[in-house]
Design a protein around this nucleic acid. Sequence first.
DNA 1: GGCAATAGGCTTTTT
DNA 2: GCCTATTGCC
Length: 734
Amino acid sequence: MFLVKKQSNFLSDLNPDQRQAVEATEGPVLILAGAGSGKTRVLTYRIAHILDQQKAAPWEILAMTFTNKAASEMKERVKVLVGSDKNVWLGTFHSVFAKILRWDVSNIGYSSEFVIYDADDQERLVKYILADMGINPKEYAPKSIRNIISRQKNSLVSPESYASSVNSPFEKVVAQIYPLYQDRLRDNMAFDFDDLIAMPIRLFSECPDILKKYQARFRYILVDEYQDTNKAQYMLLHHLAKDSRNLCVVGDDDQSIYRWRGADLRNIIEFEKDFPNYHLFRLEQNYRSTQTILQAANSVIENNKDRKGKTLWSDREKGDPVELMEVVDEREEAQKVVESIKEEVFKGKRSFHEFAVLYRTNAQSRSLEDGLRRSGMSYTIVGGVRFYERKEIKDVLAYLKLICNPRDSLSLKRIINFPLRGIGESTLRRIEAWALNNGLDLFRAIGEVEAIPDIPSRIKKSVVAFHVMMQKYIALKDKITPNELVRTVVDETGLLTMYKGDTSVEGQGRAENIREFLSAVGEYVDSSESPSLSGFLEEVSLVTDIDSWNDKSNAITLMTLHCAKGLEFPVVFITGLEEGLFPVPRSLDEPEALEEERRLFYVGLTRAKDKIYLSWAERRRLFSDMNFRIPSRFLDEIDPDVVRKTKPARQQVRFERSRFHKRITEQFDTHPEYESFSQEDTCFQQGTRVRHEMFGNGTIVNMEGTGAKKKVVVQFENGVKKKFLLQYARFDSL
DNA sequence: GGCAATAGGCTTTTT
DNA sequence: GCCTATTGCC
């Protein structure tokens, strides 16, 4: 049977609270687990314990997380305990229900060959609908329309009931679009992210026998990060666990940071109502952080009114105080991060992978990145522009989606003239109109292009060629492996060659990304048991960058606070603690939103094991201009006993000069005729010997750009060749 | 229909 | 400040 490796004594690894939570396998269980209290441990041991007691077979256990990263970590740990994880249903909400939809969605009139639309696709779809309705997208922003529709779907509000509840003119327009949006998804045989949750609910209520099947199958259900579930997700759990009542949810109300995405803390209250006689367990012992860090975190979170209330404690040592750094601007902030890391590495004998630099918005990563790059430290950024959301990748994906599902007209429109085939807007409009009149989908219509009037024969030929090519791929789809197919598509359509020929940095980057994509397909094929194109597409739609982040490379990690949830690092920097940045301006007049910002700060603080650095800048460049800033209110909330303020000595002369230099080059930029007076032009030129604090001595071998954009290429004696923006470069003349 | 230049938006967070 | 989408010209 499913033997647990360490046999029955493995429960002795747990503390009494954890052990109780693990052993209470029967009936509803709510575990309120503070940060670092061994939440994942409890979940994995629970799975092992259920198997050990032979209460269920692996495939009768369903465990759900929010990120693939959390899911794979859990899989790993279950594997260690149980020896095999193969058949435990362990995945994200979205991936688990995508799988279920593939199997059973045909029962409610949808195709199991559906494609998945991401936020960008959703927005495009809204744009097309707006265009059809003759509505100006500048007045009615597709982005906010998409957001509203998404929120409705997450709250299980149908188009009809939404329409009857709206008031403002804007909402009335959204109410018109919402049903059309759903129709269009259906016509394209596509689901958006929200459908992956909402559709199973519909499936379960329309087909009770299918619900019964899954109810009977999933005898034990476990949910991680329960505080982040939205109403739709709650309903799903409610349906599935109604019979067995063996639902175990683990959450921390203090770490709820996805309210804006529909996460609803009321789900904890609903749980108590829908599953009476539940067992409640609290895990308050933190195994991660020092006393000091917990004291700081507790003193902050106490300012929230809306919480169930708990206080984390730890028997770890007191540790270092929280370092609060007041800096002049974002450049000095980056500099201070660099210096502190250097010091920690030197004195504390730490290595780079033990550091995380966190920030509220992705935009803040740039200045930090510049600082780290200048210092020559290796770092990885998690998040930002995601790989699978890059334009060139989405283009390849659109080809693949169309091959899988020819009715996906959104993808068809994206690629019919890319690479350019002379099939322009007017041609497309004529085909679309004809398709509509003849009741055909777009792909079928382009197959009949000969019959469509008012299209020059030269263009018709091109349309036919496109159609023939796509038909060929569709026929090939099941005959060759996904990586052979993708390579063929990329080669034959010229997607790769067009970027190869582009010698610019962006062009080369895009070509590189496509090659990386090709190897991703290869990896998928190698690692999957029954690889298929649609399987690959599904995987791609549901992964995020954090999933591929690996903590084994020795590099400093940069990411947003949201991204950091669930992770831990010995040393954590939280930067940009300024009013109007963290907390963000939009939260200032809404108490609930402000509390969520505070929880986010709490999440950040509790990521740290040994040491925390906080920073705020007196001025910061936001958007395009510099503005003066005041420290975040959250800083005042930290118990002053645990804080050490470092108001570092003001800049060295070198730094002052470089800022002066910046000021004058900006002046010269607006008055180019004075540029020749810039002293730097004579200071640094080709052949000038320079010294860089990280790379050592070198020679300027090339220069490009003017004024503030002036760049120098330096060949260093150690063989490294680097390009710097002159205004940021920190050189000493030799 | 194709291409280059420009305007405009973005910056809260993501499955 | 950067990126994209749109505009206007060829």
